[in-house]
Design a protein around this nucleic acid. Structure first.
Lengths: 342, 342
DNA sequence: TTTCAGAATTTGATCGTTCAAGACGGACTA
DNA sequence: TAGTCCGTCTTGAACGATCAAATTCTGAAA
């Protein structure tokens, strides 16, 4: 194993000083063309790569982004969504010269402790949070500590002045699209299988269905009939779909808040069109039409929002003690993947 | 944000020297009891945490373990297996004072380049490889560079003298267990839905079924009839199961090399018992009996094998230029999760 | 030729930790 | 009494990079 090549080795090889090599790497514009070329050749010839540890010592920047890897959920079907997001995150981060550091935590309290731990030891430059919920203590803590972060998920119920950058997928637009698709196919009794009220994501997805149905002239009373709420899970979906199908005026199609519920609905084996949400592997496997989140794009957006804070004028802003521009955010559109079920 | 607490701050507070603080942290046994206590109090009072970057500078150890996050597979159903492994890895590593650094790579070539990149910049102490295959160039490369690593997956086709530490789940024992279970339930025409010959994992799983059937007195000719090979995927499974069911002497039960194939078999909706492999979320969702890999335990084993190399006498061994003891490994047993399908 | 501004490059200090070697005091030995 | 040793603690140097300031170089104007 070749001994470590240091910036000094490169400097000697290129017959310049350490600092010039450093400049070629970090601010090439201030180095004369010919010197720059010589240094770059030396870097290539020796296979030099800057030691992240040494750089971090001086600059205080670790080029590390911390992300929590979530435990496999009870139901697990939706787990792969996060998996794909994480993959995209790793790729986008690498392109921007950052790496993803994983951590786990069982609850918000443990997660705050982990933040502190990580910041003390590895000192990541930023965090990416997922599964944000109402009154999330993590965002508050990070804002207080002035640690850069982004969330994948909107700040549900957070007043705008406490805003922070986020990326999310427009769930309402997705369910609206699905509903419109079913309406165009001639359906009118289109039910919605959703979660109990109170989850940001769930309520948002329900809203898209509701407003599309309302625009079609369907009244509130009928909507209430068509709106079924249950906790997530395949058996729950089967039961709920059964209830809606056995009603006096049965549904002919269902928009579901998750693939788990949609899969349950499919398992009733009744003549019914079903559309799920998240386009999980299961959906692909069983031919379930589903709304697909652009996860790679979401991850890329997260990284670019972070980079804006980190490499951009973020430091300057924080020094001035003022965040003048409101935090950036991005709302992405899901797409409908047509399969046998609808 | 409190300024960073350094070892010097702690030293001043405890009225000792920097080095004594360092000793309390790294070799407490050489410090007098009372001093040790005083230093520990100071550490707690100030909330000190050693800077990983500075430590790495001096010791050359990053306390980072690199793992590749695999792209979601075509079929994706089995993706969650890796996901759960990664979660376990992160947890076990944290317990041992290590963190997991993610990277991606599209093929082995790109992965070798990434190894080099990572080692140059972040200098992880070890790698965890998954999805090893025959003649894997990655293990050869890492062995040559004398970089510690473990694989989750046996060294298929690697001569013992080029051995390295690994952890794996005994697939053959799993399919043997499944086959035995079906035999005990009275089945005799038990088919095996497997992948084409040539994959280590696939062949191993087939072997467990074959040897259990043979032990039951079923001849080679009949075994060949019952053994179906196809590429992975739900439609493929459906087709294969159909063929075995429509044969002159149809099967009454199926052991499958993956949940994808098993799910396909289930979708034939024929009266047949099916057992899958991996206990994926889909299996849980549709009530598929499946073999479950102890992923958390596998991850913990990977970490402990690595720690043995890293914190143990690994450095001394390497200094002596001799690996006297053969690399350690662990073969774990899967378990059968009974559900409706068998 | 001299002067000078600006560009290009170099030098010394520093980040926070651990290593290697040295200092100090007390006990034990000769 | 002096010498030696051991346990405990301290001091200076080093890891490899960047920052800040000093220095040298370049070319144009006086």
């Amino acid at each position: 194993m070749a001994d470590k090549v240091t910036i000094g080795d490169v400097a000697r090889y290129a017959k310049v000083s350490r600092q010039t090599v450093s400049n070629v790497l970090n601010s090439p514009e201030i180095v004369r063309e010919e010197t720059r070329r010589r240094v770059r050749d030396a870097v290539k010839a020796l296979g030099y790569r800057a030691s992240q540890a040494a750089r971090q010592m001086r600059t205080g920047r670790s080029r590390l982004i911390a992300a929590r890897i979530e435990p496999a959920q009870e139901d697990g079907i939706n787990g792969s969504v996060f998996d794909r997001f994480l993959h995209g995150l790793t790729e986008s981060a690498a392109r921007a010269g950052y790496r993803v550091l994983l951590y786990t935590a069982d609850d918000h309290g443990a997660e705050l402790a982990t933040f502190d731990d990580l910041l003390g030891a590895y000192d990541p430059d930023a965090f990416v949070l997922t599964s944000t919920d109402y009154g999330d203590p993590r965002t508050t803590w990070l804002l207080e500590q002035r640690i850069p972060f982004v969330t994948f998920g909107r700040p549900w119920g957070v007043p705008p002045e406490r805003g922070y950058p986020w990326v999310d997928v427009d769930g309402a637009a997705g369910t609206a699209m699905a509903t419109r698709y079913l309406l165009d196919a001639g359906h009118r009794r289109i039910g919605f299988l959703g979660w109990p009220e109170g989850s940001g994501v769930g309520d948002d997805r329900r809203a898209g269905w509701a407003r599309t149905m309302a625009a079609e002239g369907i009244g509130a009373a009928e909507l209430a009939e068509l709106d079924y709420r249950t906790s997530d899970g395949v058996p729950e979906g089967e039961a709920a779909a059964g209830a809606l199908l056995d009603a006096e005026r049965p549904v002919t199609a269902l928009v579901c808040v998750s693939d788990s519920l949609a899969l349950g609905a499919l398992q009733t084996r009744r003549r019914i069109c079903v559309i799920g949400f998240d386009d999980t592997p299961v959906a692909r496997a069983v031919g379930l039409t589903s709304l697909s989140q652009p996860l790679a794009e979401a991850a890329a957006s997260c990284v670019s929002l972070l980079i804006g804070q980190l490499d951009g004028d973020g430091a300057a802003d924080r020094a001035r003690g003022a965040a003048e521009s409101p935090p950036a955010h991005r709302l992405l559109q899901p797409s409908l993947v047509r399969r046998r079920s609808a």
